[in-house]
Design a protein around this nucleic acid. Sequence first.
DNA 1: CGAAAATTTGACATGACTCAACTGGAGTGG
DNA 2: CCACTCCAGTTGAGTCATGTCAAATTTTCG
Lengths: 200, 200
Amino acid sequence: MSKQFQPLINYFEKIAVLDESEKQWVKDLFVFKSYKRKEFLLREGEICKQFNFLLKGCMRMYLVDDKANTHILQFSAENWIKVDAGSFRERTASHLNIDTLEDSEVLYITPENLKLLYEKAPKFNYIIRELLEKHLTSVQKRLLQYMSSTGEERYLAFQKTYAQFANRLPQTQIAAFLGITPEHLSKIRKDITKPKHFIS
Amino acid sequence: MSKQFQPLINYFEKIAVLDESEKQWVKDLFVFKSYKRKEFLLREGEICKQFNFLLKGCMRMYLVDDKANTHILQFSAENWIKVDAGSFRERTASHLNIDTLEDSEVLYITPENLKLLYEKAPKFNYIIRELLEKHLTSVQKRLLQYMSSTGEERYLAFQKTYAQFANRLPQTQIAAFLGITPEHLSKIRKDITKPKHFIS
DNA sequence: CGAAAATTTGACATGACTCAACTGGAGTGG
DNA sequence: CCACTCCAGTTGAGTCATGTCAAATTTTCG
């Protein structure tokens, strides 16, 4: 079923065209794996050993803080990358968890094989750098939005930006992504339907 | 004064050793520039055309939101990189500002010359990728901290992590970095000196 | 259907903001 | 050296945003 690699190759080729040997390295070094709903790809304390590309399904990466609250850093669905870059890179224990919200399928590469890929196909230094830059920009944007707006504003923005997720995810998860409690999100949703302009 | 390049070369060599020709490309493509206190390196609406390395001084990168509040994304001092990666990369108008908090000196490279550097010395694809990964990790960490802690907790963490800045910066700036008002920071500082444990 | 999970609702507590007034230096010009 | 202004920081009162907890309700799914 080599067809499975096509989405990944397409993804890379949005950044730079690959020749046959480069495509072959991708096929040789990435591994297919499928997960049931609620399975873990990474648990805090472990070292992140998979750089994942999602073929199908939906997952989240999150932190559980000392008050046992869950904070979601990122949702991913089809054609997204999912990895704890810090842990993967430094081979250090991760503070994050990654698990599935739906049955999912991924292609992943290990740190060793990624290193090999960089050696055999140096173009990937460029490709991964581009991906990282984009990702960095989006995380920065999120931090700024977080600093400058209320829960309600963030929720409205989320609905626009992540329309594909908004209907697919339970509210509890969305609240954990927005950084508010589920109760508060519920109240926000109620307020939105009753416009403020409705005076007595 | 080719000595000025040494800190930058040292910075790169923390990631990978450079040969003579690579060092020479750095010297040829980076440009020295100095700034007075309160000068701008980038204003919102402009395209970020400098990838800056700080030799001396201190600056901030920040967003001004629609309510005219300032949100500081990053402080930088000696031996730090300062750039709006998104704007620099995509050649799009930036939403951010960069200005100096002290008289400062930088080495910068333009997008065109950075592209040239990647061509002439491909090792920089690797080096910049590593730098980005580290930076990404730190922004992610900050987002998570932001999501999971109060202003007081963030202030205490700031004092530890950014001890070098804590004494160098006015409180107004620290508040804008922490995402709280200066008045609130003032109250936090007051509370800290009076431990909660002091009962009646 | 029935149990478990997700969502909603309400009362109350706390974190954080706004605004306005006050305090205490750090210049600056006479 | 003094008087004056300017700016950062502090303080307090009132308000809004959000959290906590507990209970009621709805939805999901075996």
